[in-house]
Amino acid sequence: MSDWEPKIVSFLCNWCSYGAADLTGVSRMQYPPNIRIVRIPCTGRMSPKFALAALREGADAVWVSG
């Protein structure tokens, strides 16, 4: 199982974290490619239902940032 990689679904606020993820790209910082970003207009939009849905659909972790 040592080559196991988690699947991470992240919900990022359009105004800060999504922009920060953009900036990470602009700065060419490198990170593992097992994260998938869903853009939300504000973390206020984040519903526990989204987290539960992502987990039940097979995500190993959910990351909310904003």
Binding site: L23, T24, R28, Q30, Y31, P33, I37
Partner: peptide, 21 residues
């Protein structure tokens, strides 16, 4: 779909996984 800032720029050593992403 953000395949540059969130993908090609940050996974440059992993073309295959970047393509999957």
């Amino acid at each position: 779909a953000n395949i540059r800032n969130h993908d090609s720029w940050v996974h440059k050593n992993n073309p295959e996984l970047a393509t999957n992403k």
